[in-house]
Computed example of a mutant assay.
Amino acid sequence: MSSPVASHLAPSTSTISYDDIQRATERLSHVARVFDQRIVGQHGLRTALVSCLLAGGHVLLESVPGLAKTTAAQTLADSVSGTFHRIQCTPDLMPNDIVGTQIYNYATGEFSTQLGPVHANMVLLDEINRSSAKTQSAMLEAMQEKQTSIGGEIFPLPKPFMVMATQNPIEEEGTYVLPEAQMDRFLMKEVLTYPAPDEEVDILEMIQSGAMSAALTAQPISIEDVEFLQRLVRQVYVDTSIKQYIVAIINTTRGGGPRPLPNLNQHVRVGASPRGGIALMHLAQALALQAGRSYVVPDDVKLLRHSVLRHRIVRTYDALANNVAPESLIDAVFAAVPSP
């Protein structure tokens, strides 16, 4: 599995046993087969969702309507035998509608707690930018603390717990933009693009044949398997040189780093936070495990760079006015920092 180029990044003794790597590969192949039955194309979305789940984070999905965001979220839940709840955000949605509330029982004269839809393994928060700031912050608090508080009592959220929030970039009317500080809570932001024409033909074929709605033939994995995979991801070895590489990238987004980019401050107002570096490392570990490796190589750090950093770099007004894409700035940063 190791290449001559990456061999110096591997530990002298593997941090993960051969049997565990084989078990992880076998479980991940089950997840891939479930996706193959329901989702056509969208390989970037699959990689993002599975990697985010393994890294224990949350994902923000942005696209125009109809690009299988809801289907992908439901498929991920089905592939890991997890509970799934969908919350449709509207301006009148209240925090209690998400978290839960106390209901008074007139017969007994006592309050009973009714848990909200956030209490599930996979939660799809549809059009998060349509909910009010108060509701958004209640959801983000649940994401961060992995628990909710109802009537002064703490209720832990199920494990694993993952939020997939979607936002529609084309309808701005009646929306509440997520502040940068709140977007930073998402491990990654995936921007979906239209499928290729041949993939759209495949979608129509599958819908006509009923394959999309047919019962799953692929065997899903269990919640215990997911927890095993998440533990394994944390054991994936990250060499000191890889950590220094990640820190150099993050510092370069702030105008520093070993090779500072000239005139970066004309395009970037605020660079990535330390949370961006943590996200790069955790997702690199998840990608290494999916590749059957027990250690991280530079390509693991690079693969999801756009998804990790596009919502963590705040562009200047000039960059926004000139349509300077965050992805081009991220690519410039990675090009400037030498790989270990």
Rank of each mutant, 00 (worst) to 15 (best):
P197F: 09
E172F: 13
A215E: 15
T252L: 03
D198Y: 14
T175P: 10
S209F: 07
I242Q: 06
F228Q: 06
S222Y: 09
M188Y: 07
M164K: 11
I249T: 03
D239C: 00
T175D: 02
T166P: 05
E200M: 08
Y245T: 05
L216W: 14
P169A: 06
A165Y: 00
E180G: 01
P197M: 04
G174V: 00
Y176H: 10
M206I: 09
V177K: 15
T253H: 06
M164F: 07
K189E: 07
L232I: 06
I207L: 10
G210E: 03
R185P: 12
V238M: 07
D184L: 05
T217V: 13
S222V: 07
D239F: 02
G257Y: 08
R234M: 10
E224F: 04
Q244F: 12
L204N: 09
E199R: 05
P179L: 00
V247H: 13
V201M: 08
D184W: 06
V226S: 03
S213Y: 09
P179K: 02
G174L: 00
V233S: 02
V247C: 10
G174H: 00
V163F: 01
K189L: 08
A181I: 02
Y245E: 10
T175A: 00
V247Q: 13
V226P: 11
L187V: 10
T240D: 15
L204D: 04
Q230A: 02
T252W: 04
P195C: 01
E173G: 11
I250Y: 08
T193K: 13
L187H: 12
G210H: 03
D225A: 07
S213D: 14
G256K: 14
Y194L: 11
T166A: 09
S209W: 10
L204F: 09
S222L: 08
N251Q: 15
I246M: 07
E199D: 12
A211Q: 14
A196M: 14
I170S: 04
E173F: 08
I250D: 01
V163Q: 08
S209V: 02
Q230H: 06
L216E: 13
V238Q: 03
T166V: 07
Q182P: 14
V201Q: 12
G257W: 03
Y245P: 12
E200Q: 09
V177I: 14
D239W: 00
I246E: 05
E200V: 08
V191Q: 13
I221A: 06
V236N: 09
R185V: 05
Y245D: 11
I223T: 12
